[in-house]
Structures are given as structure tokens and as C-alpha cells.
């Protein structure tokens, strides 16, 4: 049960920081996403994010930071396994599942639905 509580507060806290950025700096959502992915990739590559992910589980993997963490985790693993070519094959390998799912569901949704007025 405490696993769920950990996921809640860490995940919630990461979103709270994002909200502060939106309200205080007027960053658009696209820029927030870019910022978070880059932060995730940096934190992941120096090993800090792994500690957070081990602690918070989905609280760390569901936010977009986790996506950045995945990218760098996979690059480092590929470099360790394959050497030089790993730099090129690593990052998108980790992102493949998420990006492919987004393209597929996005495409189907676009065929099925029309834009809705607010």
C-alpha cells in the first residue's frame, strides 16, 4: 500500500513543479514537456533518476521525465553492450514503444474524431 502512496506523492510533486512553471513563467505546455524530457535524460544519465524510480515506481515512470530517463538509460546500456554504435541505437530503442503507440492511436483517433469546439 505504501508503494501506492509513494507513487502518489512523487508523481503529484513532479506535476506540482510543472504547474508552478506554467503559472510563474508562462511556459507553454510544449516547452514544459521538452524541459522535463531533457531533465529526465540528464538525471537518468547520472544515475539520480534511477533512485527516484526505485522509490516511487509509477510515480516516476508515468511523468514525462520518466520518458527522458528511459532514453538515457537505454543509451548507456547500449554503449556498454555494443560500444560506439550504441550512441546511435540506444535512445530511440527505449522510446520505440511509447512513440509507436502514440502514432498508432493518434492516427486512428484522427480518422474517427473531429475537433471539438470549447
Amino acid at each position: 500500500m505504501s508503494e501506492i502512496l509513494k507513487a502518489f506523492w512523487v508523481g503529484g510533486f513532479i506535476c506540482l513543479i510543472g504547474q508552478l512553471l506554467i503559472d510563474k513563467t508562462k511556459l507553454t505546455s510544449g516547452r514544459i514537456l521538452v524541459l522535463y524530457v531533457c531533465i529526465g535524460a540528464v538525471l537518468g544519465s547520472v544515475g539520480i533518476y534511477k533512485i527516484i524510480a526505485d522509490y516511487a515506481g509509477a510515480g516516476a515512470t508515468v511523468p514525462i521525465i520518466g520518458f527522458g530517463h528511459n532514453l538515457s538509460k537505454s543509451v548507456l546500456k547500449e554503449v556498454a553492450d555494443k560500444g560506439f554504435t550504441g550512441i546511435f541505437t540506444g535512445s530511440l530503442k527505449a522510446a520505440a514503444g511509447g512513440i509507436s503507440a502514440t502514432i498508432l492511436f493518434g492516427f486512428i483517433a484522427a480518422l474517427v474524431f473531429n475537433p471539438k469546439e470549447k
Binding site: Q19, I22, S29
Partner: peptide, 8 residues
């Protein structure tokens, strides 16, 4: 707001 923007 960020509650749905920041997650996947």
C-alpha cells in the same frame, strides 16, 4: 493543468 500535461 500540469496534472495531465506532465504525465505521459
Amino acid at each position: 493543468g500540469a496534472g495531465t500535461i506532465v504525465p505521459i
